[in-house]
Simulated assay, not measured.
Amino acid sequence: MTFSLVARCAETGMFGIAIASSSPAVAARCAYTRAGVGAVASQNITDPRLGPMVLELMHCGMSAHRAIAELQNTAQHLAYRQVLAIDANGDTAIHSGPNSLGVWTDAAGRNVQAAGNLLANEDVPQAIVEGFEQVSGHLGDRLIAAMHSGLAAGGEAGPIHSAGLQICDTVPWPVADLRCDWTTQCPIETIASAWDVYKPQLDAYVQRALDPREAPSYGVPGDE
């Protein structure tokens, strides 16, 4: 009921994840990033504990591959889970349990891993990877392009209703965390529109947090 990718920008070191699902509020339950560490998607009959667990293992020095292996040795009910991770070197790893739903598969490229379940067809993750690799520029732009490619390849077997995009950089909070928790329209288009608005303001929001004395104006009525 989900398709997603985790990715790293080789130029900036940013990490990001984009995800979509027929279920509500998918990003709230499945998307995890940590600055300087990596990104994790935990999906398919979701256990929200798994994303933070894998990030903590990578924070303690494990590669994505070792962290997923440790997860497989310690976590319960992994036959029902799908977990994909990328680490600080851009290396990726994935666990897909045999009880993943419907058509499920994955694909990997340089600094990117994609996967899904209840997919329309097995080509969707590879289309996501290719969509990411064929676009240059900001990591957020590449994540959106990748999700558009996955959707064009068929996406989920049924209609999707929620989506999200999360990006971390050098500060200890996501510099972008955009969500569409439910819509009967296309949630990927909703997230893409939100990104178009948010992207030019991203650095300003970080600056306001770090030192509001140097922050730009808000550009809203009443702000002088």
Results as ranks from 00 to 15, higher is better:
residue 1 M to E: 07
residue 8 R to Q: 14
residue 14 M to E: 15
residue 14 M to Y: 06
residue 14 M to K: 15
residue 15 F to Q: 06
residue 18 A to G: 15
residue 19 I to Q: 03
residue 20 A to K: 03
residue 25 A to V: 09
residue 27 A to S: 15
residue 29 R to D: 01
residue 30 C to A: 15
residue 30 C to H: 03
residue 31 A to M: 07
residue 34 R to H: 09
residue 37 V to G: 08
residue 37 V to R: 06
residue 37 V to F: 05
residue 38 G to H: 02
residue 42 S to T: 13
residue 50 L to H: 08
residue 51 G to S: 08
residue 52 P to C: 04
residue 54 V to W: 03
residue 54 V to H: 05
residue 59 H to N: 11
residue 60 C to A: 12
residue 60 C to K: 13
residue 61 G to S: 09
residue 66 R to W: 00
residue 67 A to H: 05
residue 68 I to E: 01
residue 68 I to T: 06
residue 70 E to P: 00
residue 71 L to I: 07
residue 72 Q to T: 10
residue 73 N to I: 00
residue 73 N to T: 11
residue 74 T to A: 07
residue 75 A to D: 10
residue 76 Q to W: 04
residue 76 Q to E: 15
residue 77 H to F: 12
residue 77 H to S: 13
residue 79 A to P: 00
residue 79 A to I: 09
residue 80 Y to G: 00
residue 83 V to Q: 03
residue 83 V to W: 00
residue 83 V to M: 03
residue 86 I to Y: 01
residue 86 I to V: 15
residue 91 D to A: 14
residue 94 I to M: 10
residue 98 P to L: 07
residue 100 S to T: 15
residue 100 S to W: 06
residue 102 G to I: 06
residue 103 V to K: 04
residue 104 W to L: 02
residue 104 W to V: 01
residue 108 A to H: 09
residue 112 V to E: 04
residue 113 Q to A: 09
residue 114 A to F: 02
residue 115 A to V: 02
residue 120 A to S: 14
residue 120 A to L: 03
residue 121 N to A: 08
residue 124 V to M: 10
residue 129 V to A: 04
residue 130 E to H: 13
residue 130 E to D: 14
residue 131 G to V: 07
residue 131 G to N: 09
residue 132 F to R: 04
residue 133 E to W: 02
residue 134 Q to D: 13
residue 137 G to W: 10
residue 137 G to E: 06
residue 138 H to G: 05
residue 141 D to V: 09
residue 142 R to G: 06
residue 143 L to H: 03
residue 143 L to M: 13
residue 145 A to C: 09
residue 149 S to Q: 12
residue 149 S to T: 05
residue 152 A to I: 03
residue 152 A to W: 00
residue 155 G to N: 11
residue 156 E to W: 01
residue 160 I to K: 00
residue 160 I to S: 09
residue 160 I to Y: 02
residue 161 H to P: 04
residue 161 H to E: 07
residue 162 S to Y: 02
residue 164 G to I: 05
residue 165 L to M: 14
residue 166 Q to I: 14
residue 169 D to H: 12
residue 173 W to A: 12
residue 174 P to C: 06
residue 175 V to K: 01
residue 176 A to V: 15
residue 178 L to N: 00
residue 180 C to H: 02
residue 181 D to V: 06
residue 189 E to M: 04
residue 190 T to V: 12
residue 190 T to H: 13
residue 190 T to G: 01
residue 190 T to C: 10
residue 191 I to S: 01
residue 191 I to H: 02
residue 196 D to G: 12
residue 196 D to C: 10
residue 198 Y to S: 04
residue 199 K to F: 02
residue 199 K to C: 12
residue 199 K to E: 14
residue 201 Q to L: 14
residue 202 L to N: 08
residue 203 D to H: 13
residue 206 V to E: 13
residue 207 Q to I: 14
residue 207 Q to W: 00
residue 208 R to T: 10
residue 211 D to Q: 10
residue 211 D to F: 05
residue 212 P to H: 12
residue 212 P to D: 11
residue 215 A to L: 06
residue 215 A to N: 09
residue 218 Y to C: 08
residue 223 D to Q: 04
residue 224 E to N: 11
